[in-house]
Each structure stands twice: as C-alpha cells, then as structure tokens.
C-alpha cells in the first residue's frame, strides 16, 4: 500500500519532533566543563613547571585570570616569527590582568639557543621549561607553535595550531578573554 505523500509530510516532522523532545539535555547535564582535556570547552589540564628565570609556576594558581599559553621552540621558524607579537601583546595587556606564558619545548630544543633567542628578542613574559615533554604530551601538542586561549574559569576557549599568530589576532582573542572575564561571576 502506498502511503499518501501528505501523510509523510505531516508525520515525519512530528516523529522527529518527538525525537527532539526525547533528546533534550537535562539541566543536571548542563554543567560547566568538568573534564580536563586540551580542547575548546574543556578545563585546561593543570601542571607545574620551572620558569626560565628560576622558580615555578603552577597553572592552578592562575585561576581567575585569563591566560594565553603558547608552546614553542627556538628552532621553529613560525615560533620565532610570532614571539615579538606575543611580547607586544604582553606589554599591552598585562595591566588588564591577562597572563601570557610561553612553554618552551625544552626537551627538543637547545637551552643555549633558547636563551639567546629570549635575550635578543627581550622577551619579558614568563617562559616555562618543559624539559621532559610531559606538558607538551599532556596538551597533545603535535606541532609547534600551538597556542591555547584559556578563560578566567580555566576553560580552553580556543586553540590555534600553527603560526605565526599576528598581533592583530592576539588583540582580538585577548579582548574576548577579558570581556568573558568581566562578565564571569565571582568565584
């Protein structure tokens, strides 16, 4: 028996509508990100590393501040090209509460070349040393540079693989992070 087309036109959308009703997300599932993973909408994985100038930084201590996390190495041409723009962004935004951190892939870099690159470019934002590659592995960094934009609640809002990232894009993303920070409720 052939089903009249008008019946299909009416019933199929209704069946799908019932499916949509069945598929709705309960309020209990609409919770903020609770799993740590190196991807947008997930909590940024926590770590502690030594800084280039001595001392340690624990990422967990930065909660409440928007953060740009850039993985780089001195042998990587796009990393070298974008570092002056990161420095410029640091100078423009550090007083607004934005934190920029460079994570040097020290396990695959030369310490001397990294030091001379930092000195010649007068980089003043914190540089962390990933000497064992554990943090690069934690963030599943497969290509350098890779940059994570993390909001004040510790959630990754954007990932950019590759570069160089120009200052104009850093400004757009920094302003977005700071705007989210402004709207975020007090912890």
């Amino acid at each position: 028996m052939k089903i009249p087309k008008i019946i299909l036109v009416i019933t199929l959308p209704l069946i799908l509508l019932a499916w949509i009703w069945f598929s709705r997300v309960p309020p209990s599932a609409q919770v903020p990100a609770s799993i740590a993973a190196p991807r947008e909408d997930f909590l940024a994985p926590l770590f502690t590393l030594e800084t280039f100038r001595g001392g340690e930084i624990d990422i967990a201590d930065l909660k409440g501040q928007p953060l740009i996390l850039n993985f780089w190495a001195s042998w990587c041409p796009p990393c070298r090209a974008e570092m002056p723009d990161f420095q410029q962004a640091w100078e423009e935004y550090r007083d607004s509460g934005l934190v920029i951190i460079g994570v040097n892939a020290t396990y695959q870099d030369s310490l001397n070349e990294m030091q001379s690159f930092i000195a010649s470019n007068q980089l003043t934002f914190p540089i962390l040393l990933d000497t064992r590659g554990s943090v690069s592995s934690l963030y599943q960094v497969r290509s350098l540079p890779t940059t994570f934009f993390i909001n004040s609640e510790g959630v990754i809002t954007k990932t950019i693989i590759g570069g160089p990232i120009p200052l104009s894009l850093l400004r757009v993303e920094a302003d977005q992070l700071l705007m989210d920070n402004y709207h975020a409720p007090d912890p």
């Binding site: 950019i160 590759g162 160089p164 990232i165 120009p166 200052l167 104009s168 894009l169």
Partner: peptide, 20 residues
C-alpha cells in the same frame, strides 16, 4: 569586525593564519 585590532598592524591583513 575587528578593525581596531589592526592598528599599526596592517601587514597582518595578508597573514596566512586561517584564524583570521
């Protein structure tokens, strides 16, 4: 949409970065 961000940075209009 982000004209302000390009001040003094007009060369980045030609950036190959797809995030722009």
């Amino acid at each position: 949409r982000n004209m302000y961000a390009f001040r003094g940075q007009w060369a980045s209009v030609l950036s190959l970065n797809p995030a722009l």
